[in-house]
Write a protein that binds this DNA or RNA. Structure first.
Lengths: 312, 312
DNA sequence: CTGAAAGCGCTAACAT
DNA sequence: ATGTTAGCGCTTTCAG
């Protein structure tokens, strides 16, 4: 059995409360006493039991991070940054994958609630009402969604979308389309509104979704497309290739996210880069009270190889 | 404040122990009593506090999952599968990113120990000795590494490597090389030994690592290469392109892992597919005692577009 | 089948 | 500066 605070107390000849204080309020205990305590703790390999501590303090030092789909390359950098940042504040993070299912998402949050000091909800599939209701039980920070009264971390897709459309227009494209994402998606709504171009979709937010849309794109006679995200864009490129349509010679494609596969792809994807790492860190800051209110993070427009002059 | 077991007891007119039993040992309590308790619990929105429960039972119903780098596309499918499987047993999972740093890895494990019933160590960068020492405090399952006395989940890279080499030979390639990974990597050692071809490396297990190796590959006059993983392979393809060398016309490249970027890439990567989802599930099973001993999972060799006939 | 009581590991008043 | 005590929310003997 692992050493408890009592073992340390016995070994160092002080009361348990002194040991407790040595760890959680060092300044309240005599230097020499404390060093004796610490020595004993070290020798025994003692580490405070965080769960037990949480029971009295009410703070678990745990955070929940609920994402729509871990396997979506958009999330890992966010998770990684959030986790690293949380660690620096001595927090652990539960990562929960909702598998794009609102019901799973809700259940996950419910069971996590008691065990964390707050949860970061990334690209939730849940309705705002449900989110607000759940927020009564535990502090929330929502990423990629505006929910009344809750702190959120947003990314400025609107600006990215405008830049993308301007870029395509500058290349001579006149027939443009937005390949929309899932109907509930905040990001999709933002981008669509900002782009102000005809919409094809909704589509599955996956490569398959993009591939499936290839025919519709060709049928519409479109030469420049802004896709819901990089995955869709990548799928579209693939689908177009299968139809004998080349990117960027025949059709220019812009993605959103700047995920790794887009950078490795050939042609390398032109994209609206989302600040995922910053979002992860910011969300944690909001949760821990180190920052305030809704934050909108800037996006960047990155021109690579999937866009080119309009065919004539 | 959230409802506690005491609130439920009061509301349903029974003792707390009866409420407790209603949840954790339903068969020990009268049907009608229990339904009364459950109704009250429901009305109050009561959920047992898992941390408090853990204090008495010693079981946290939490698992730790330590990975070398969440942002490496190899891990997310494994994490996702492990997490989903854990959930089905009512377990939550802490995901910890060691950021390829052995010291961070150790610290992460240490702080997690008390809070979990077991930890899955994926592709650890830690030495076997340290792992064994840490294993004294908490059940371990190690993925992609053999550690004496610890249950592990292995993937049969050796067979995959042999298949890859045979495939390249059958295409007429005679000058082959293995682009090795980090020196501490179990997978790298396995593949190298099984491939039985000259080694170039070690290399960083990233796309950059692969790109950096392009010159050496060309200098060696190699026409068929098996890379440490898909990321390295993808980077190599990129690096070769920059040197004017085409894949697969001039050089054939085989990766390992079967990550998403390889499937989306053009040319699509020929690869040794690793059973990541199965590994995630199996690791959890081993941890929860639902399965035994070291398990070696089969790999699959998938021919796609990055390999072709040797140039003549 | 249910109640009473002790205790898990720790912290937080309150004393001293 | 340190010891005493109570108690966080829950489970688990032990009685009844």
């Amino acid at each position: 059995m692992a050493a408890t605070i009592r073992d340390v107390a016995r070994a160092s000849g002080v009361h348990v409360s002194t040991v407790s204080r040595s760890f959680s309020a060092p300044h309240l205990v005599n230097d020499t006493t404390r060093s004796r305590v610490m020595a004993a703790a070290d020798a025994l390999g003692y580490r405070p039991n965080r769960a037990a501590r949480a029971l009295t303090t009410g703070r678990t030092l745990n955070l929940g991070l609920v994402v729509a789909d871990i396997a979506n390359p958009f999330f890992p950098p966010l998770i990684k940054a959030a986790q690293a940042h949380a660690r620096s504040g001595d927090y652990h993070v539960f990562v929960a994958d909702a598998d794009e299912d609102p019901r799973a998402e809700e259940e996950l949050i419910r069971t996590l609630t008691k065990q964390v000091d707050g949860v970061v909800l990334c690209s939730p599939r849940l309705s705002n009402e449900v989110i607000v209701r759940l927020a009564a039980d535990v502090p929330f920070v929502v990423v990629n969604r505006e929910v009344d009264g809750l702190p959120s971390v947003l990314m400025d897709v609107a600006r990215g979308a405008r830049l993308a459309v301007a870029h395509l227009r500058a290349l001579g494209h006149t027939r443009l389309a937005y390949l929309g994402g899932p109907s509930g998606s905040w990001t999709s709504r933002q981008a669509r509104a900002a782009a102000g171009i005809p919409v094809i979709g909704p589509n599955q937010p996956t490569a398959q979704g993009g591939a499936d849309a290839a025919e519709a794109v060709v049928a519409a006679g479109v030469t420049g497309v802004l896709a819901y995200n990089d995955l869709v864009a990548l799928g579209l490129v693939e689908g177009l290739a299968a139809l004998g349509v080349r990117v960027p010679e025949d059709v220019s494609v812009v993605g959103v996210d700047d995920i790794l596969p887009g950078r490795l792809n050939r042609p390398k994807l032109t994209t609206v880069a989302m600040p995922t790492e910053a979002a992860g860190r910011t969300a944690v800051d909001l949760l821990l009270g180190a920052a305030d209110g809704p934050v909108t993070l800037p996006t960047a427009f990155i021109v690579r190889e999937s866009t080119g002059e309009a065919p004539r």
